[in-house]
């Protein structure tokens, strides 16, 4: 099923321990180019730690990992050039204007002023936010902030974008619109690595992995996971797996 040449994330027995506590326990998986990969797990299951290792923010205790073809141990800087990141806080500067935020992140990724200006117009037009370019981000509604944060995360056209619970606190309409943006992004060949705790969103992913106690206990398409666990919905699949947890949730 997986085309080996197209793999953008690959981990092999990736492990992270803090003293006696093994937060991430020998996980191995691969993600293909253009895939929407759902990374699920209860709080404390280790998904944030795993994601931090993939982003080069944290060094693995053992095991290997490759993101965009670079080793997460030794080539964190190259990885950072090739990924985008958006956290649940939407991570924009509230006291900067819409266009200033875009310019800043363009500048961080080394884009030239002219290119930034051009792309900003295209982006604002696509988001329908041309009127809002001079507004301070803190005055924007949550749904718009979220869309803007996502657009900023993929502004530099990364190979992979990591989304850490990107739809927290947003209403269902905005969430649906957001997932449309995710589909568009994946169609352009950008891999989307997304954590979420909304199980209906898990259904939208191409493939889903479910972490329990630092291990990946299930990894497949939502349809096949439901077949395997003989469940009606992803919610039931998740509940069935989460019950096997022996770790205290945070």
């Amino acid at each position: 099923m997986i085309n080996r040449d197209n793999i953008v994330i690959r981990t092999d027995q990736l492990t992270k321990s803090f003293g006696d506590f093994t937060a991430v326990d020998h996980i191995s998986f691969s993600v293909e180019k253009g895939e929407i990969f759902g990374f699920l797990g209860a709080n404390g299951a280790g998904k944030t730690t795993a994601m931090r290792m993939l982003c080069g923010l944290s060094k693995p205790t053992s095991g290997e990992g490759f993101v965009a073809g670079y080793n997460i141990r030794t080539q964190a800087r190259q990885i950072r050039k090739n990924i985008g990141y958006m956290s649940q806080k939407f991570s924009l500067y509230e006291d900067l204007k819409v266009w200033e935020n875009i310019r800043l992140f363009g500048g961080i990724y080394g884009l030239k002023e002219d290119a930034i200006r051009e792309k900003t117009e295209v982006l604002l037009d696509k988001l329908g936010m041309t009127q809002q370019r001079e507004r301070l981000v803190k005055t924007l509604p949550l749904g718009w902030k979220q869309k803007l944060a996502f657009s900023v995360a993929i502004f530099h056209e990364p190979k992979i974008v990591f989304l850490d619970e990107p739809t927290g606190g947003v209403d269902p309409t905005a969430r649906r619109e957001f997932w449309e943006m995710i589909y568009d992004t994946a169609d352009k060949g950008i891999t989307v690595f997304v954590t979420t705790h909304y199980m209906d969103e898990a259904e939208y992913c191409d493939r889903v992995s479910i972490m329990v106690d630092g291990r990946i206990d299930a990894l497949d398409t939502p349809r096949r996971l439901k077949q395997t666990f003989k469940a009606e919905s992803m919610d039931s699949v998740f509940t069935a797996l989460a019950e096997t947890s022996t770790r205290q949730s945070e």
């Binding site: 080069g56 950072r80 956290s87 991570s91 500067y93 992140f105 961080i108 990724y109």
Partner: peptide, 9 residues
Amino acid sequence: TMEVLLVSP
């Protein structure tokens, strides 16, 4: 926002 900066190059 610090997180986002740290993930950047």
